[in-house]
Design a protein around this nucleic acid. Structure first.
Length: 422
RNA sequence: GGAGAGAUGGCUGAGUGGUCGAAAGCGCUCGACUCGAAAUCGAGUGACCUGAAAGGGUCCCAGGGUUCGAAUCCCUGUCUCUCCGCCA
């Protein structure tokens, strides 16, 4: 959410931001409402001021036995006007809030301007795709052949986009989660194990709601949502809090299952682990001072990259362009891992600086100095990494001619010391 | 799931219709005293909105209601605690 005052004072900046994002939102109507709101507010407040004074006078007179009937009658009248104006105010504020919640974040000046993912920019590449002396298989073929992934039974038991991991497959998933958490905690991230369901306010806080409700799974008969990412519970841990400056920066990492309805993705990535309704992810979340957030974004991205490097998986870093960036983000780097069967790079992590966009929605503040006025923190997060996609990448990149899969060195201690899955 | 109790400022906790954004204590900040510290004494110490400012408005879990006036009365919800039941 943008700051109302900022929008009011900088309409041109906001309009430009909407334009480069390809948003059709019209700001002018909103600005008129804001004018109107303030007029009514001033009016209501002066009426209330009067009421407060008169009420005091009534109290005084009653105490001293004087007659106050006339004043009481006057106030009864005045209350009618107050009620009507407040009614108007509530309506305008509701409408403005709805609007404000739907305005995307303003892209950082360093974000490349572009219409869609074809205009994202390659920032750097790491590693070389291997040359195979055979036709590389897709991870779902490898996984089924090794009897470590069972897509058919996942579909039978639950439905499309649900999968059973089995034997060393299940072990590999768990090994990756542990390896990632161990790596991140050794670098100063505090491990969090969050709730996998959150209420509506938390979803609004991080920006999944109200605009994208069709992407989420809602638990019937409750107001709970299955989390689409640990970002939601972990960022909301500090909602409606004022942190002390010395508490910052806060670095958290969290494993969670993630649940996504994938509305609008029908027919895309229907095979394999790439696009599931439920998948595992280790998430990195940071709460930092505003002046540090862009340096922190670089470091967070590097921390996510470190996992890919340790696993020796070729990847590249993309700076998302204005048209492809998420609603809440001011700047995003995607990490894309090489997938031989796709003969291309696919997203495996997304690292973003939200500046104060989420902090404002969730009201997460800090006090820059003792007694100073609280300010919003900046929040960041990134996948470190999406586990299912990492399994896909390992199966494909480490596949051998005989159908077995070499286990990356750093994972072998987590995999009973085995060298191969066969 | 059943029964009961409760929710007030950073914390403890008073306040049951009027000048209460809210006593007192603790904590914290600043000052005095001190070579320095402790102790002591003094002053200060919430958030949000509006306004150029002065000022004004709102907030005592949340949302409604009663009233000229609500932290205080009424209704609904949420959460916490205790006991019982059930369960991993």
């Amino acid at each position: 959410m943008l700051d109302l005052k900022f929008v009011r004072n900088n309409p041109e900046i906001v309009k430009q931001a909407l334009k480069v994002r390809g948003s059709a939102i019209n700001l002018d109507q909103f600005l008129e409402q804001e004018e109107n709101r303030r007029k009514i507010l001033v009016n209501v407040e002066s009426l209330k001021n009067n009421r407060n004074k008169v009420s005091e006078e009534v109290g005084r007179r009653k105490k001293s036995g004087e007659d106050a009937e006339q004043l009481v009658l006057e106030m009864r009248q005045a209350n009618q006007s107050i009620k009507e104006l407040e009614q108007q105010l509530t309506e305008i504020e509701q409408s403005m809030a709805d609007f404000l919640y739907d305005i995307p974040n303003i892209p950082h000046f360093s974000v490349p301007v572009g219409a869609d993912e074809t205009e994202n920019q390659v920032v750097r590449t790491w590693g070389q795709p291997l040359k195979y002396g055979f036709e590389p298989k897709a991870h779902w073929e490898i996984g089924e052949k090794l009897d470590i992934l069972d897509f058919a039974r996942g579909a039978k038991v639950t439905g499309a986009r649900f999968t059973f991991y089995k034997g060393l497959g299940a072990r590999l998933e768990r090994a990756l989660i542990n390896f990632m958490l161990d790596t991140h905690t050794s670098k100063g991230y505090t491990e969090i194990f969050p709730p996998f369901m959150v209420h509506r306010h938390s979803m609004v806080g991080t920006g999944q709601l109200p605009k994208f409700e069709e992407d989420a799974f809602k638990v019937a008969g409750t107001d709970y949502f299955l989390i689409p990412t640990a970002e939601v519970p972990v960022t909301n841990m500090y909602r409606e809090e004022i942190l002390e400056a010395e508490q910052l920066p806060i670095y958290h990492c969290a494993y969670s299952a993630c649940f996504r309805a994938e509305a609008g993705a029908a027919g895309r990535d229907t095979r394999g682990l790439i696009r599931q309704h439920q998948f595992n992810k280790v998430e990195l979340v940071k709460f930092v001072k505003p002046e540090d957030s862009y340096a922190e974004l670089e470091r967070l991205t590097a921390d996510a990259e470190a996992i890919l490097q340790a696993l020796e998986l070729p990847y590249r870093v993309m700076a998302l362009c204005t048209g492809d960036m998420g609603f809440t983000s001011a700047k995003t780097y995607d990490l894309e891992v090489w997938l031989p069967s796709f003969n291309t790079y696919r997203e495996i992590s997304s690292c973003s600086n939200f500046e104060d966009f989420q902090a404002r929605r969730a009201s997460i503040k800090f006090r820059p100095a003792p007694k100073a006025k609280p300010e919003f923190v900046h929040t960041l997060n990134g996948s470190g990494l999406a586990v299912g996609r990492t399994v896909s990448a390992i199966l494909e990149n480490y596949q051998q001619a005989d159908g077995s899969v070499l286990i990356p060195k750093v994972l072998q201690p987590y995999m009973l010391g085995l060298e191969y899955i066969k």
